[in-house]
């Protein structure tokens, strides 16, 4: 079996942490900043960071079309925090022309819990990855305020869905990667 190739969108954000978790699981990782670097990938992680910054870079370097083509061709996404904002069908409290990849039928609100002082480490129950609660961090986190019929909710935080799956895409409003927690990445890889 040839090694699965997974990319991390490396325009800005916590690329290194995702890379470390993926490599610890034996995956070959490629950083993606150019359209050509999407070729041959089975999965793409869209990391945490600042969604408006990533959005501006996607627009400036004409990456929207290539990303949409790659996802239409079967590429799977794992998105965390800012990545989940980019993956949403609708963004609340975003910039008016912020890009939306519309990978999942979800409506996301930016900074839904407030500013940095509301950021928290949480032991989150995610039955889909096992009984043991998962240590994660919510950092100026968004919330998933609405989900469409085809969206499966895997975990919730403060009354809103925090981990959702639709088809091959897995979207999280929190960061498992900064605690080094591998179970959600493993769940994503098992679907590739």
């Amino acid at each position: 079996m040839s090694a699965v190739k997974v990319g991390v969108l490396a325009l800005q954000g916590d690329v290194r942490e995702h890379r470390q978790v993926l490599e610890s699981l034996g995956v070959e990782v490629r950083q993606v900043r150019l359209a050509a670097e999407l070729e041959g990938l089975a999965g793409l992680v869209i990391p945490g960071g600042e969604s408006t910054t990533m959005s501006r870079l996607i627009q400036r370097f004409d990456l929207m079309g290539p990303l949409q083509d790659a996802f239409a061709g079967g590429l799977a996404a794992l998105t965390t925090c800012a990545g989940t904002i980019l993956a949403a069908r609708e963004i609340r409290d975003g910039l008016p022309d912020q890009v939306r990849l519309e990978l999942l039928d979800i409506v996301v609100r930016r900074n839904a819990f407030g500013r940095q002082r509301e950021s928290a480490e949480v032991l989150l129950e995610i039955p889909a990855v096992g009984e043991e609660p998962v240590p994660v961090a919510f950092i100026r986190a968004p919330a998933i305020e609405e989900v469409g019929a085809g969206v499966e909710v895997l975990a919730s935080y403060r009354g809103e869905p925090a981990a959702v799956r639709q088809g091959r895409h897995l979207a999280l409003t929190f960061h498992p990667e900064i605690t080094g927690e591998p179970r959600l990445h493993r769940l994503f890889l098992s679907g590739l």
Partner: peptide, 14 residues
């Protein structure tokens, strides 16, 4: 410490 350092992680490359 993790959420304090974590916000800085999110600013990387920016």
């Amino acid at each position: 410490a993790r959420v304090k350092r974590g916000l800085a992680e999110m600013l990387k490359g920016g």
